[in-house]
Design a protein around this nucleic acid. Structure first.
Lengths: 245, 245
DNA sequence: ACATTCGGTTGACTTTAATCAAGGTATTAA
DNA sequence: TTAATACCTTGATTAAAGTCAACCGAATGT
């Protein structure tokens, strides 16, 4: 696990029991003894912005659950460009699918906004998959679900324009459909979100402000009409909101 | 399973034993009795171009292995646009991951060039996954592998330009690295390949002809230097050729 | 042989977002 | 308080691919 030296980070063991894993669908309804083993082995890290959690092709020894902050998954090309695969908010898990092949991470993970993540040994996951048929099925379902998300992402990058992609990104931050105004928090550094340049992001947000009466104060966004946002965003998509089914 | 009435298609049972499934990594080294059950239940279909094998949200009852021809996987948006998820050549399997949720296909499949496909009951796959731990692991690995492919696709659509995407598409049609000139066959209808418009495709191919001394006769392409193509294409990518690892 | 159709190519134009450049604002450091 | 830095916004330009339109050539049908 590589680290950028100039950024502070600290680790604490066993800080908070249970709750975190249960945020992830994959672990809901699991064998309690397995969960507890994971909990005991879990290590909480506090990482500052720009900290690199792991690099593509590093040996995969841990998977992570995000307690707070934002994590960027990306890959680097031979001529130095960076491609953002995903931007993950709190509650998401990452690094959990690199259990096969040479057990190398398939992309790099970097902290976009100061984050608390919990690291669990991937060997335990691998072991549970190999020995527990029921969990193996859950994992399979989890990965298939992940594939669907990728299909959606491919679709979005193909046919949505920048304001729609941003709108879709915002919608995914709202856990469930709510009536009335909604407040959202973006990573403080808005750069790179939703797979577009910062200038494009800025213009897209300005566009949403105008078209949908969005109010923006710093990293906080107030959405007046969720339905308007859904119509605006999802018309160019093959998925019906809420699309995380 | 919906069909376009105006296109002929015929079915034959048990036409060819074994071989087909073994082309797919997922089924290599499987329990022979499972494979044989699949073989017996397999139904060979001949579909003409434009035939719709299944539609998104149809009940998923079969998965397919392509014996010959080309299949396009796509999704349709609410305002009628079409997004191509993948274009599959002979030897590929499709429809095999829609085993969860409501058991609905997550995208539509259409014949791009006259195809022979073999349909196998998805219930058998589902059953084997549920009861055979070893196969369940194989399936998990297969799906994770699929995820990696999607990541690659996302990357390609983000940073590769049209000629590079086309070059990458061609490279994937070559089973292994070979020296000397190579002959490839495209779907006769070149439209829609590699996720771009036909005009863009045409210009991209013209570009490759010029830059890399490609020779094109109808649907046949002759590649003079594979190394040149690899350099041209893969420099804008995070994967090293051959990237199907 | 001729007309028709379809697929493919080419040119002109438009749209979209990336890039380049400048200026503004806010937080942090001196 | 001022200076420095980082982040954000805006304008102008550029690059890439989609769109629209015209045309060409091969295959098909009459």
């Amino acid at each position: 696990m590589k680290q950028v030296a100039s950024h502070k980070c600290s680790s604490h063991d066993h800080t908070q029991p249970l709750s975190e894993l249960l945020q992830v669908t994959l672990f809901q309804g699991c064998d309690p003894s397995f969960l507890q083993k994971l909990e005991v082995a879990g290590i909480t890290h506090r990482f500052s912005k720009n900290h690199v959690v792991f690099m593509q092709d590093d040996l995969c020894e841990w998977f992570y659950v995000i307690r707070s902050g934002w994590i960027k998954l990306f890959r680097q090309t031979l001529d130095g460009d960076e491609v953002i695969i995903d931007i993950l908010p709190a509650g998401k898990v990452f690094g959990e699918t690199d259990i096969f092949d040479n057990r190398l991470y398939s992309c790099s993970a970097e902290v976009v906004q100061d984050a608390e993540v919990i690291a669990y040994p991937i060997s335990m996951l691998r072991n549970e998959i190999a020995t527990n048929q029921a969990f193996s099925m859950k994992m399979l379902k989890h990965v298939v679900q992940g594939q669907r998300e990728k299909d959606k992402e491919i679709e979005h990058r193909t046919i949505q324009n920048a304001p729609q992609r941003l709108g879709c990104f915002l919608l995914r931050l709202i856990p469930a459909k709510k009536a009335g105004p909604i407040m959202l928090h973006l990573p403080y550094d808005k750069t790179l979100i939703a797979g577009m340049q910062s200038e494009t992001f800025s213009r897209a947000l300005a566009r949403l402000k105008e078209d949908l009466n969005l109010k923006v104060r710093g990293s906080t966004i107030e959405i007046e009409s969720m339905d308007a946002l859904i119509t605006y965003t999802c018309s160019a998509c093959s998925n019906v909101y809420p699309c995380e089914d």
